[in-house]
Design a protein around this nucleic acid. Structure first.
Length: 416
RNA sequence: GCCGGGGUGGGGUAGUGGACAUCCUGGGGGACUGUGGAUCCCCUGAGCCGGGUUCAAUUCCCGGUCCCGGCCCCA
């Protein structure tokens, strides 16, 4: 027997239906902002995929060689592909360019709650605007989408420029910066303290870092933060940028959090993460500004900002709902060739009218067919028998009430 | 990559170092040649894989694998 590859899933009809419904709601939000859908290949050259990241992501990449010996990888996220597409096809279009996507991604990781080797991301990239209003729009869009599907969430917004401004003043090496960011990101404050001591950082650095991390909260903290950062001009500049962005963020209840470092190295400015409140695999959305990435990929320096939803995690964070399908079953009273054909004709006619219609394909006895309708939750059954056909009628049975009426064939469409 | 808990028909389960492995549900067919949630009958179908201990393993031990979850990292 064959089994599913580890970390992958089969989606059964019922769940698929729900996914499509949620997908459609999210799509409508992106499109209401006039973001336009694109689709890029499932695999890209290994070169492209590994461009912006180091060893860590390489370990998570599904890689293969094609028959021509070219190294390929399955996309672990979509932003790289969108940047490539932008440079290939759209770089001379009027800005801003607003694109969205919904696609599967692959990471070779150990599965756990809300984490799979194949998973779906829906996200967007806004390319060409460096202004705070663009950051604000993207954040608003992210929250609108979650509202549209009923996720209970908390939004955290930070800015990498603030920490960078501090680091610069202390001449830290790139590696030291990275290590510090990593410890901050995972909120390992003890480890952070130990590390800062191990690299013999100055007292001032330690103080400013921990002070900054303490200011996690509502917008009111910004005033105090400004005070704390008064000797760090670059940080103040970043803070100013963040304040401008927040002017455009329409919801008040967001958490200012300078601890958001984001693992992907390409972020340069505002960063944000949104957490669902239903435990396990909390992060349903992540994004931010990446003004260097396009340049890194060989294009003109171009500012950009975007985010991605973890679609599967959204599915875990929405209130459950039932999908109801109005299905009609047409069943002949006997397995007589003429009745069978007549049943198909009736089904055809109703389908043309937009109904979802099934004909009994199992040559079941009438009682078994009704039983089938019952277990399948099919509400309406059309019973086709000679006696009624002679008068141009069929029987229409409502499985829920048990009511059964004779209906003229011409009027059937109005009854079901 | 590391750590914890699991794995019995399609789904849900019981039990056991020893005979054909329990029950419910589901699926197919029939009793009933035109009316359901019904009854009865028949059929279908299971101890993750490999090794070890043992006269004997689904049961005990080890390894692997997959699932669930945690770390790392992220969506």
């Amino acid at each position: 027997m064959f089994t599913r590859p580890k970390g992958t899933r089969d989606f059964l009809p019922k769940e698929m239906k729900k996914r499509r419904i949620v997908e459609e709601k999210l799509r409508r939000v992106f499109e209401s902002y006039n973001f336009r859908e694109i689709l890029t290949p499932t695999f890209e050259s290994f070169q492209l995929l590994s461009r912006k990241t180091g060893e860590e992501i390489r370990r998570q990449l599904f890689v293969f060689r094609d028959h021509g010996g070219r190294e390929m990888g399955l996309r672990p996220e979509i932003t790289s592909s969108v940047v490539r597409l932008y440079l290939n096809e759209l770089k001379n279009y009027p800005k801003p360019i607003k694109l969205y996507y919904f696609a599967n991604c692959f990471r070779y990781e150990n599965p756990q709650a809300g984490r799979y080797r194949e998973f779906w991301q829906m996200g967007c990239e806004l390319i060409g605007s460096k202004y705070p209003i663009a950051d604000g729009e993207v954040i608003n869009l992210a929250m609108d989408g979650l509202d549209a599907v009923g996720v209970d969430y908390e939004t955290h917004i930070g800015h990498l420029g603030v920490l960078k401004g501090i680091f610069q003043k202390f001449n830290l090496s790139e590696e030291e910066e990275l290590n510090i960011r990593r410890l901050i990101d995972k909120e390992d404050y003890k480890g952070l303290r130990d590390y800062l001591e191990s690299i013999e950082s100055s007292q001032e650095l330690r103080e400013i870092v921990f002070t900054l991390l303490k200011f996690k909260g509502e917008r009111e903290v910004l005033g105090e933060v400004r005070e704390v950062l008064r000797d760090y001009p670059l940080s103040l500049q970043a803070l100013r940028n963040l304040e401008e962005i927040l002017e455009f963020v329409k919801k008040e209840d967001v958490v200012i959090n300078f601890g958001i470092a984001r693992g992907l190295d390409y972020y340069t400015g505002m960063v944000f993460e949104i957490y669902g409140k239903r435990g396990g695999a909390k992060q349903v959305c992540g994004g931010g500004r990446y003004d260097n990435l396009i340049e890194l990929f060989g294009g003109e320096p171009t500012p950009a900002v975007g985010f991605a939803y973890g679609f599967d995690r959204i599915m875990m964070n929405i209130p459950d709902f039932e999908v109801e399908e109005e299905v009609i079953l047409v069943v002949p009273v006997k397995k007589d060739i003429n009745l069978l054909k007549k049943s198909m004709e009736i089904a055809d006619e109703l389908r043309r009218r937009g109904k979802v219609v099934e004909v009994d394909l199992m040559y079941r006895r009438l009682n078994k067919a009704l039983n089938y309708a019952n277990t399948m939750g099919i509400r309406k059954v059309i019973i086709v028998g000679e006696r009624e056909l002679e008068q141009g009628m069929v029987l229409l049975r409502d499985m829920r009430t048990g009511e059964q009426i004779g209906v003229k064939l011409e009027e059937l469409g109005e009854y079901v």
